[in-house]
Amino acid sequence: MPLILAVDDSPSMRKMVSFTLAGAGYQVVEAVDGQDAYEKAQTQHFDLVLTDQNMPRLDGLGLTRKLREHPNFKTTPILMLTTESSDLMKQAGRAAGATGWLVKPFDPARLLEVIKKVIK
């Protein structure tokens, strides 16, 4: 059962993402911002990280950079799920080491399709 770390500061968005992922048989751990996610990643292994960009304390790009420095997360797929849609932000995501960039609002079926494609 693949384990997914879902990171978003919006409780509504966490609820929707968790509902979608759990419905497809994934196990989900939620984090309320990048810092919370990074702390959870210290003690647990995840098969995929799905993160928002704009969050307090540590944003999605910051989280991605920090995770990529961690030996456990060198190759873990990290997907950004955000309202940010500019090419500049996408380039920054790529440079930070993200696996993919999804623009909200998301279509649940499409999200699951992408996750299936990138998860090991």
């Binding site: 999804l102 609002p105 992408v114």
Partner: peptide, 13 residues
């Protein structure tokens, strides 16, 4: 609006 802002688009790097 979602369509006009590229909502739902996917880029895999």
């Amino acid at each position: 609006l979602a369509k006009s802002t590229a909502g739902g688009s996917v880029d895999l790097f």
